[in-house]
Amino acid sequence: MTKHRLFWPVSALLALLLVDLIAKPSFFKVEVRDGHLYGSLIDILRLGAPLILVGIGMTLVVATRGIDLSVGSVVAISGALACLHLSGLPDQDAVGGTVVAVGMALGLCLALGAWNGFLVSVLGIQPIIATLILMVAGRGIAQLITDGQIITITSGPFRALGSGYLFLVPVSILIALAVFGLSSLLVRKSALGLLLEAVGGNPEAGRLSGLRSGRLTWLVYVFGGLCAGIAGLMIAANTPGADANHAGLWIELDAILALTIGGTKLTGGRFSLGGTVIGALLIQTLTTTVYTLGIPDTATLLVKALVVLLVCLVQSPAFRDRVRRRRRPVPATESARAVEVSA
């Protein structure tokens, strides 16, 4: 069972939840309040949804040996544009206006993703540099859109994206799971996933075997932009308002952490969407745990770093192998396997 690729991330998540159960049994209390589910676990799902989305997009980008640093800025732009449009409407509660606002924001995010894809796949700029451009400029664009102010909105339908409930369950997690389900189906039930892994694993071999890797690369950046755009709408809808300075700040690093925890290789070629979802939930659980247990905020970052370090250590086959070797002599086949994995 320990060989399953999700074994370690899932056990880390369960271990963290176990800590919560011991320290604060009420952490697991879920009740129906005001017509929706209410409890810490529900908060984790609702607040974790944007990171899950950004993480899914990032996972596919990383699978092709790329990286997208601009997602945080795209999050800010998406929320800023939607809120700017909504704030100008005579009736913010109108569903039509909300749909237009969401459509405009997502359209722009698709274009921004296409811009990243263009730089990487057509101009051949290294992904980390290509997306750094939009990471820096993008926050500036978001600030231009909002004029440096926080745009507060009241629109009911828009707010539902971030803090609404459907059949008792947060809308945001339903959207995130829908995107997860669709993208999993696409990559695992069609050849798409195999092609992505081929592009990431060895681009040259992929090209020689007739793969149009350029088009695939372009596609994953566009998808990454779309995911970041939806996440941006959720974050804006949760507050509710557009904060161009803070929305999505450092989310690219959290997303990279989530997919690393989930077992996706940053060197490309091997990826796991399910692992990313678990990783994102682990990060959000950690944040909520810190707040719930009342860990002093001067120690918060240290506690988070220690947990992440632990998770990464148990994930590392080389580290596990060393621990095991201390306990008992290793059979030849196993050490050979470990070398193969870590190579």
Binding site: S26, F27, G39, S40, T239, Y291, G294, D297
Partner: peptide, 23 residues
């Protein structure tokens, strides 16, 4: 009874308060 940083932002203010309300 509880004191945490909300980083001067609305989003964090909401997230931390949600945790306070439950804990």
């Amino acid at each position: 009874v509880a004191s945490q940083t909300g980083e001067f932002t609305r989003a964090k203010g909401k997230e931390v308060m949600e945790a306070f309300l439950k804990s």
